[in-house]
Amino acid sequence: MSYKIAICSGKGGTGKTTVAVNLFSTIQTKWTKNVQLVDCDVEEPNDLLFFKDAKIINRSIVNQSVPVIDESQCTFCRKCEEYCEFNAISIIPSVKYASVDPNMCHSCGACLHACKFGAIQEHQHPIGELTNYSRGNQTDILEGSLKIGSPMQTKIIKDLKANASEESDILIYDAPPGTSCPVVETVSAADFVILVTEPTPFGLYDLRLTVNLMKEMQKDFGIVVNKAGLGDREVYAYLKEEEIELLAEIPFNREYAGQYAQGKLLSDIPPLIEQEYMKLAIYLKNRMNHD
């Protein structure tokens, strides 16, 4: 079994991807080659932008099962419409109209149980794709990407996680922002969660929401403060008060922000920043041995 680390934030743009990519690289070069980076931010996957040497190993389509109603078999009884909790089915008996909106459908299968006339069958509807990348011999970066217009991000994350190798020593999940179902799906299997925040009122407010989610999900977690030096000191007071562990502090560095902009996160890393990632990797190694 792999040791699974999820990187989350609540607020967007705090530096999840920056931390995930750097941590992955630190672990790969200094600890074990057998690590996979899994980009679970399927709405806006960005990890690959930082690995120009990565080659596609495999790409597959993610499908969702969507019911299709055969109007020649349908009696327009509306039972399926009643069963559908997601308002994806519309039946108008007077004009013999029956249709399913794939963008509303959650593929739960309830309508199949509702129909007693065999009028509903499931068809495959593409909602995104999974890609495996490699920079050597084996897959080390996995990405899920949601098809534009589909609201089924959680299903892609589920398939993406299943696609990662349990043979890896470590899996790093780069989570989407927010605190709702896609984040829950990403974090659900994680052994440890790193919450990345920034020292601003926005960062702190959303950190509190995410900490509540972690407590509810009974996850072990620690904090990385990114862009340290900007904003204020409130986040540190909060961590102390709540007795939450501060794992690393990445100082704000305008030059390095410019490098990030160009996709050059992994070259010319300022020594102070490199040191913080080493500290984080060592912490995780101890934690993993302890768990």
Partner: peptide, 10 residues
Amino acid sequence: GPPGVGCSAI
């Protein structure tokens, strides 16, 4: 609005 392009953004 929210970040992303998924159900909340839609």
